[in-house]
């Protein structure tokens, strides 16, 4: 099952769903995060199933909605991807193969080249604060198995605001194996990043994220089971 959180993505959602069907060959569920445009209608027209949230709860909350529904349906594997067309659906199979084969519980799609100077600094700081060394910790392009889905449907996961380092810390604490898989990503087709937009938003995001990372940092040296792949 492919879960796509979407907020006002009418311009791209149709193409993203069509590509996801073609390359991932899985049912596609769009979680409409209280959009005020035609995102829901475009998603339905493209053949996706839609979960409509009554109001906006943020990208991570929307993603978790999809995960909770997948858990309820007893789905074994889920791929999460963005609705803005940045994630190349052709990479979905690589991510999925990693978790289906049992090599990891979570496959984290990474694309370091997308990192602007500011983003790279942010990633480095997140790594230092959390003690976790991930190449692209803010990537929402992930595949996960039932164990990871269950871990991410917990109330503790509902306390998180973003699908970045907080989610990774939660997965590591649940002793799940995370594998970083290089994937292809495209430039954003419309709109702009909700986080890396203005300095004020970036500052607020970083303060919250770094505080969370420091607060949740594991005191014991207990590095996660983590693999890095070099093939896309």
């Amino acid at each position: 099952m492919v879960v796509i959180p979407a907020f006002n993505e009418e311009a791209t959602i149709g193409d993203v769903i069509t590509s996801a069907f073609r390359h991932a060959d899985l049912p596609v569920w769009v979680v409409d995060d209280g959009s005020t445009d035609l995102t829901k209608e475009r998603a339905l027209t493209a053949g996706a199933r839609v979960l409509s949230l009554p109001f906006q709860i943020g990208a991570w909350g929307a993603t978790q909605t999809g995960l909770r529904y997948a858990h309820k349906l007893g789905v074994d594997f889920v791929i999460t991807m963005d609705a803005d067309g940045q994630h190349d659906p052709m990479s979905a199979k690589h991510l999925l193969e990693t978790v289906v084969s049992g090599k990891a519980d979570v496959a984290l799609g990474t694309f370091e080249a997308r990192g602007s100077g500011l983003r790279r600094v942010a990633w480095k700081m997140m790594g230092l604060a959390s003690g976790l060394d991930f190449r692209d910790p803010t990537s929402g392009y992930r595949a996960m198995n039932a164990s990871a889905i269950k871990a991410l449907t917990s109330s503790a996961a509902s306390m998180l605001d973003h699908q970045d380092i907080g989610v990774l810390i939660l997965l590591v604490r649940a002793r799940l194996r995370i594998s970083e898989i290089p994937v292809n990503m495209f430039p954003r087709k419309s709109g702009q990043s909700r986080i890396f937009s203005t300095w004020r938003v970036v500052f607020s995001y970083m303060i919250h994220t770094l505080s969370l990372a420091l607060a949740k940092r594991q005191l014991r040296r207990n590095q996660p089971s983590k693999q890095r792949n070099t093939l896309a």
Binding site: L53, P54, G61, T65, K72, S158
Partner: peptide
């Protein structure tokens, strides 16, 4: 958290 999980539950039940 309760509010968010309730909204999620509502979306699932509607589906």
């Amino acid at each position: 958290v309760k509010n968010q999980r309730l909204a999620q539950k509502l979306a699932m039940l509607e589906s």
